[in-house]
């Protein structure tokens, strides 16, 4: 693998509360290579967005990084604060939020929002920034870009606004985009277009994407590799085909079993019994064991050991499909 754009090692995020310390992200490690799309999936509260916010340095206090390392383009950034972190945001790491209706400032023209972002990071003149703003809008597929730079956000539809958001996230040419549920708030018919657009733009620029979603369909369509998170820990990580088709972790298998796939015909969908535990009442050992069909006594005593299989790994005592596991 080439040198990673993003490298996370044992990342832990803690939230101190009156009832003790919560760990929404607990010892997570993964890399993203240049131009790669890493899908991060999990249920609500699994810590996938929290990990993304930790990387871009936008955790809402009192949540904070309590351990581990975040390295972006060879520079360790988890210790950076204030101005140094600001220079990094937008310039090296871009972010796309879930709801395009609320992520644009309603009182500023979109052209102004684009130029101010470029002027904050790039050493270019205002005129040049304005020209680039038009080009950026045209590139994300907004018709009549030269006039639309003067429009306000409310003059665009939801899908168009998400295109504007993508243009904003990419305009200072970051090497990594964190896309936090970028299509969840959109119409189904627009979702595929937005994912395709994001993928195409990033491939052209060699920009890596950390695609946070709970939608297995989006993962299957867009991701090169996938990281499955459960209760703040990484359950499984690997190339998307292998993880989706031959999961090692019973949780991944459960997720796949509960996702409708055209290829599987009319079988009833499976349901994982129970719900993900709250962060303040995590079971000991592997957090998934109370819901796991393969759980045994030692699952409750210690977290599953890391097993590796080629490029993939899973944290489980009794992984599925043991053939070929090293």
């Amino acid at each position: 693998m080439k040198e990673a754009v993003l490298s996370i090692r044992d990342l832990t995020v803690e939230i101190p509360t009156r009832h003790g310390i919560l760990r929404p992200v607990d010892g997570v490690s993964y890399d993203i290579a240049p131009g790669e799309v890493l899908g991060v999936v999990g249920e609500s509260g699994a810590g996938k967005s929290m990990a993304g916010n930790a990387v871009i340095g936008l955790l809402t206090p009192p949540a904070h990084i309590a351990g581990g390392e975040i390295v972006v383009n060879g520079q360790r950034i988890d210790q950076l604060t204030g101005e140094a972190m600001r220079r990094l945001r937008g310039k090296q790491i871009g972010m796309v939020f879930q709801d395009p209706l609320t992520s644009l400032n309603p009182l500023l023209r979109i052209g102004d929002q684009l130029t101010e972002t470029m002027l904050a990071h790039l050493d270019i003149s205002r005129t040049e920034a304005e020209e680039r703003a038009v080009a950026a809008l045209a590139e994300v597929g907004i018709p009549g870009a030269a006039e639309r730079v003067n429009s306000y956000p409310h003059e665009f539809s939801g899908g168009m606004r998400q295109r504007v958001v993508i243009a904003l996230a990419l305009c200072a040419e970051p090497s990594l985009i964190i896309a936090d549920e970028p299509t969840t708030a959109l119409d189904v018919s627009v979702q595929a277009q937005i994912i395709a657009l994001l993928k195409r733009l990033c491939r052209d620029r060699g920009t890596a994407i950390m695609l946070i979603t709970h939608d297995m369909g989006v993962i299957a369509e867009a991701a090169d590799r996938v990281a499955v998170m459960y209760a703040g820990r990484l359950a499984e990580l690997g190339p998307v085909r292998e993880v989706l088709m031959q999961p090692h972790h019973p949780y991944t298998a459960g997720l796949m079993g509960s996702t409708p796939l055209a290829s599987r015909g009319k079988d009833r969908l499976h349901q994982i019994p129970g719900a993900m535990p709250r962060l303040d009442s995590l079971p000991g050992g592997c957090a998934f064991h109370p819901r796991c069909p393969r759980a045994a006594a030692r699952c409750s005593s210690a977290p599953g050991p890391l097993i590796t299989d080629g490029d993939g790994r899973a944290a489980c005592w009794f992984p599925l499909d043991r053939e070929g596991v090293a």
Binding site: L88, G90, S103, A172
Partner: peptide, 26 residues
């Protein structure tokens, strides 16, 4: 608390621009 302020921060705008240009105007 609004999303567009988070997004403005995520784009690496200067604190002053976020507070006065984006927040105060709203």
């Amino acid at each position: 608390r609004q999303d567009y302020i988070r997004f403005a921060r995520a784009r690496g705008l200067r604190e002053r621009a976020v507070n006065f240009r984006h927040a105060l105007k709203n």
